[in-house]
Amino acid sequence: MILRPSTLALLLISLLVTGFSLTAGFHAMGIHDRWDPASGSEEQLELERKTYLISTIMNYVFPLELLSLILLLYTADELHPLFTGAMCAAGTLAVNPYGYPALLVKIVTALLAGVWLIMNHLDSRAFDYPLIRTKYLFLTLMMPLLVVECVLLFSYFSGIKPDIITSCCGSLFSHDSPTLSGDLISLPPVIMQALFFSAMALALLSGILFYRTGRYGQLFSALAAVTFPVSIASIISFIGLYIYELPSHHCPFCLLQKEYHFIGYFLYVPLFIGAVSGISARVISPFSANPSLRRIVPDTRRYLTLVTIICYLLFTLIATVEMIISPLKL
C-alpha cells in the first residue's frame, strides 16, 4: 500500500463516485419499475422528483470520472521512481495486474457516462419522458462497472510496494524484480499510419456526408467508434514517437507531462469528446421513433456529428503538425 495524498484522493473519489452512482442506480431501478406517466399519484410525483436527483448526481459523477482519470495518470507518473525499471506512468501501471484494467474500466465508464448524459439531455427536451425506462435501464447496467472500477483501484493501490532499501541489502538483490518497461506493445508504425489516416479520413467523410445529406448516419457512427481505439493505438505506435523525438518510446502517458507542453490533453480531450458524440449519435438514432422526439433526434444527431467532425479534425491536425515539425523521421 502506498500512502500518499494523491492515492488517498483517488481512493476517496472512487468511493464517493461509486457510492453516489449506486444511490442513483438504486433510484433508477425504482423509476424503471414503477414509472407511470398517466398517473397523477403522489408516488409518481416523488419518482419525478427523483429524476432530478439522478441527473444531478450523474452530471457530477461524469466530470469527476474525467478528473480522476487525469489524476490517476499523474499519480502513476509520479510514482515511477519508486519501482525499479519503471520509466513513467506506463511502467507504474504495470507493477501489478490491476493497474491497466483499472485504467481501462475508468475510460469505459467515462465514455458510457458521457453517452448517458446525452441521452438524459435528449429525454429532458421531450414533454413525455420518452426515454425514461431506457436510460434508467442503461444506468442500472452501468453500476457493476463502477463497482469493478472501485475494486480494481483499491486492489491496485493496496498491491503496490515500492522497491526501497531494506535493512540488510540494496533492494536490487533482495528480490528479482522484473524490469518494467515504459513501452507498450506497439504495432509497426507504417501499417498503423496507413490504418490511422484511412480510418480518420473515412470517419470524417462519412460524417460530412451525414451532416449534409442525412444519410449514412449508422456508417459514420460505426467508423467514429472504430477510430477511437485506432487513434489511441496510433499514439502508442507512432504519434508519440514524433512527440518524444525518440524512435522507441511508445508511451501513451508521458505526453501528458509538462516536458511535452501537455500536448496529450490536446490530443486526448478532442478524441474523447469526438468518440462520445460519435457513439451517442448512433445510440440515440432509434429514439426518433418516439413521436415527441421525432424532430429533436435528427437535429441532435446532426449536432453531435458536427462535434465529432470538429474534434477528430482537431486531433488529426495536431497529430499531423507534430509529425511534421518533429526532427524525428521514421
Binding site: P37, A38, G40, E48, S124, F127, D128, Y129
Partner: peptide, 8 residues
Amino acid sequence: ITGLPERF
C-alpha cells in the same frame, strides 16, 4: 397540461 413533466 395534465400529464406534463414539471419542467414543461
